[in-house]
Design a binder for these strands. Sequence first.
DNA 1: CTGAAAGCGCTTACAG
DNA 2: CTGAAAGCGCTTACAG
Lengths: 367, 367
Amino acid sequence: MTERDAETQRRSGAGGARPTIADVARLAGVSKGLVSFALNDRPGVSADSRDRILSAAAELGWSPNMRARSLSTNRAFAIGLVIAREPDIVAADPFFPTFMAGVETELSGAGQALVLATVTPGRQEADTYRSLALDKRIDGVILTDLRADDERIALIGELGLAAVTLGHPDTDSPFPAVSIDDEAGVTATVDHLVQLGHRSIAHVAGPSSMLHAARRRRAFERAADAHGITARTVETDFSATEGAAATRHLLGDVAERPTAIVYSNDPMAFAGLAVAQRAGLSVPRDLSITGFDNTDLAEHVYPSLTSVATDVAAWGAIAARVLLATIASEPVDNTDLPPARLVTRESTSHAPASPAPTPPAPTKNGR
Amino acid sequence: MTERDAETQRRSGAGGARPTIADVARLAGVSKGLVSFALNDRPGVSADSRDRILSAAAELGWSPNMRARSLSTNRAFAIGLVIAREPDIVAADPFFPTFMAGVETELSGAGQALVLATVTPGRQEADTYRSLALDKRIDGVILTDLRADDERIALIGELGLAAVTLGHPDTDSPFPAVSIDDEAGVTATVDHLVQLGHRSIAHVAGPSSMLHAARRRRAFERAADAHGITARTVETDFSATEGAAATRHLLGDVAERPTAIVYSNDPMAFAGLAVAQRAGLSVPRDLSITGFDNTDLAEHVYPSLTSVATDVAAWGAIAARVLLATIASEPVDNTDLPPARLVTRESTSHAPASPAPTPPAPTKNGR
DNA sequence: CTGAAAGCGCTTACAG
DNA sequence: CTGAAAGCGCTTACAG
């Protein structure tokens, strides 16, 4: 017993070679093949052998060498996430860290790893997917920030990778989609503002090439239309800088200055808040603003920010789960998360009685 | 030629099996071993053979299978990053995405991958390092957020992993350190404030268990001491929530209310700004505040935030480079990055003539 | 300079 | 239920 303990310790130390299934087989007095069967609890191993094998493995402190396992099973036991946004934009947006934390909760339990690549948008992106696949480092990917006519859908297929998309692509896709109904959040935002008396609302949107930005924009315009109110949209790249510029643009147009601005993410809303304040406007007295994603800081600015909340971590966890199921060839369906919901805070309030030098709000223009 | 093209295409398609060095050897008319030598440009291959092998490989579209390479070389060709902070804190802090982008620039060119794990602080952390090492998924790790008496130093050694630390541990460490002199930034901040007439400055610090937080705090206290001014420190967990609470605490103490607050990161400074504004104070007229890390949002809040800038992406790139050199058994030295520097913006200004109901500022208390 | 062989640590038919 | 063997795609001594 003492001898065995010493053996165990020697083997698990940094210096000693790690035990392999050959060592386990020797100790258990069986063949390597049987050890493999027992360890992967496949049928066809007698209870007696299984016990001997398992305790031998435990005693030696054996753990599988993923490299060997990968080579023989042709599986990486890892999934990839390629983030293709400008560094400052992803840095300013808490989405990815939160999302990855969610992904991780699912992976760690399943013995899978997350391989992360961040690239600047463009050609480099395709090469990154390609080399991840060619190097056989991953079994599948989570496709985020879906774009119009996203060429990644075809690429991933060619590369023989599994995938799950965040939201539905606008083209045929062989991959399951995990979606959140963020349109509901946008609609609720517009409804909320209209209820507060706003009749001229602007939207600071993300790039129209990104599907979710375009979707939010459409939802915004539909909702505004349904209420028969004036709506304008300014497109940005999601950065605080462009959010600020868009706000300056909107507020500068004194003739048609909106009384409320709906931003497509929180960082832009923070920047917009600052622009408004700098221009001498009081938020929400003169201008109401809303964000999207309900980031941590939303409740820590002044005035606190009304924002649309989505459970980003859950999204990550479910996307990972669906992807793993796909890789395991289990049947999976598209899954929908609970819709995004509006969290109202101080940054939205009643529309100003007479919004500065703005002409009287239109009462009904169409439908 | 046409036939060969067809062959090439068949092989590179998703359906066909990928070419292996055996295929390359056959086409080049040499042995597998020689192919391996040529492909890894080792000496001892005739120019003629090398050419034939290389063009055969190119023709077949061969690329190395990392799994096989890993198994035989006992290298993962990947490094790990384990982030052990509460999800909301890492999400609010742009440090990690920026850092990882920097790491990535170095890795992609070197054919290395980044394996990311995010864990909630605690026991889970050690297990994560352990399984990453036991699964042989990585060759080394970048140790961030060094703690006092950091048990990871010993753990990583036991696990046989290479490592690089961000900053110098407070214990003996066999690993190279890549450091940034953030004390310089703190000192510059205090100097700046003192120059503006502030005599009562508070510091909202990160957790003292984290070495860089403690180091910034010491630098703050040293600088305050050097100027002979009143200095207080409140410790937090780096979150906006605790940053706000600390600010409330500091401002609530009307008798000794500081005229300036130095925050140990930007998110806390943003939260502190909001608390001050909510309390009816004008920043910077009544209160000056400064942040740390000069995040994107710093110039997009109102008033814009004076903050300490460090080149986080460069830090990531250099840390990765040093780690790869270590893994390759190349000699490496500790490296120091350019010191952090203060970026002054609107949030700092002259100390108020008479800081509310505060007693007259002490003129000289000691040295 | 080159070939034939063994080995990395697993998994998986194939026989019994 | 179990063993012996081949194979995953590389690398690396060992002979010539």
